[in-house]
Write a protein that binds this DNA or RNA. Structure first.
Lengths: 238, 238
DNA sequence: CGACACCTCACCATTTATGGGGAAGGGAAA
DNA sequence: TTTCCCTTCCCCATAAATGGTGAGGTGTCG
């Protein structure tokens, strides 16, 4: 059923090289999936935000201006989750939350919604949401049918957004040798040199060679730097 | 097509309260989806690992004993990704990687595979993989048809695993004060104590208080450990 | 075969980090 | 108001990390 759509989607995404094109992609997707609103919203590890969405610019401006992300149950609820969720299942019990939804509907949003939280390396977080004015039963049918597609799209889109935005940001780092990874991993876990040397069954002298070669490869100025870089670049898993 | 299966799956998962039951769930899933092997493997932020899988115990033991996670292109490749990927698209160019695959096939694994990386809050990372002995074209057809289901299952399973295991499991990490964050951030960027103290315009003595209080809060055994923990827990952004 | 990367070990002098102690002012919460 | 926490500063002795250099063996790839 959805395979053709998905193939088209990937095809369209593969050519995107700017964030503006992602905006166009989201708008196209809205037609393909016959839905009123789609939103991709990314918050990277440094707090930088980016969104590609089909809400009215007025609503977006108002949202940003008044800092509604601090009230919005979708954002607040999804930040702690990592599986898709229907907006009905979120906590709307607070008065600010209900007022917010009232305003949102006035601004043209639908009453139904469905969001997919996405997480990338290094604390990156994004939300992909579908929104529509609909009755409960037909909305449930709609989401049941498309949730699989939407999850895939959300992830591909997030990958593309990160590729565009964050790609060449952090410079190239040479891969570490197995021993170098072992060394940095154990250091990151809190062992000192003597402990690491013992754990790896090598002399502390040898260990130092690994630390220094890792430092050299990463362009790090000391051990702390090297370990931090290895962690943030995903070279070691702690 | 897959809706009934998914409903059954969620139903089965909702009753799970122990990690052992997840193991049983994975085994059941293997039959439902007519695949040779399924693997759920989670690494939480504290380095704790948990797996529910259908590989032979011998292979699992061998994998752990020899630290194959450092060689396995599936683990290494997926850690940097966050969209599903076929194992063929991974980097198998190194000799250790090829040797590893040879051993894996000898141990009964199929030659084809497909993995879904999953990320949760606070650096939690998991992999959900499907594995089978198959030809390229029929495997491509299989994955195309089921990738949507598998992604959903992977996410629900990860949610359940974290719910069971996660809650109060990984020790509480107290929030860092602004000065402590500044300190660890600059240390992570490669400055030594003197440099950080100068950058923050405080004495090196004062700086030490921050390092030690941060270490204490994080339960870290030294500066390297504290910085690594702060990075992996997303307390600082490097 | 030769280049190259990797793993292993050693020594020395010096710089740097750590552990543990004490102290004082400011602010916020209870 | 009292109690925390945050911020800032100081001292000392000891443990640990660093910088630089040298050198032997293994394995892989062209």
């Amino acid at each position: 059923m959805s395979l053709n759509k998905l193939v088209d989607m990937q095809e369209a995404l593969s050519h995107a090289t700017t964030l503006e094109e992602l905006q166009g992609f989201v708008e196209g997707l809205r037609d393909v999936y016959d839905i009123e609103n789609l939103v991709y919203h990314s918050v990277n590890a440094s707090g930088g935000q980016y969104a590609a969405l089909t809400y009215s610019p007025n609503w977006v401006d108002r949202y940003i201006e008044r800092g509604y992300e601090r009230v919005d149950p979708v954002v607040q609820g999804c930040y702690k989750r990592f599986t898709p969720i229907d907006w009905k299942a979120l906590d709307w019990s607070g008065k600010p939350a209900r007022d917010f939804m009232g305003e949102a509907v006035d601004a043209g949003l639908g009453n139904q919604g469905f969001s997919i939280p996405i997480r990338g390396p290094s604390g990156q977080f994004a939300l992909f949401s579908a929104n529509q004015k609909d009755k409960d039963d037909s909305w449930a049918k709609y989401t049941d049918e498309r949730v699989g597609d939407l999850i895939l799209i959300a992830h591909y889109m997030n990958e593309k957004a990160l590729e565009i935005e964050g790609g060449p940001a952090h410079g190239p780092v040479r891969a570490l040798s197995p021993r170098e990874k072992d060394t940095l991993t154990l250091l990151a876990l809190g062992h000192n040199r003597a402990g690491v040397a013992e754990a790896l069954n090598i002399s502390e002298n040898t260990l130092r060679v690994y630390i220094e070669s890792a430092r050299f490869k990463l362009g790090a100025s000391n051990t702390v730097h090297a370990v931090a870089m290895a962690v943030t670049h995903g070279l070691i898993v702690v």
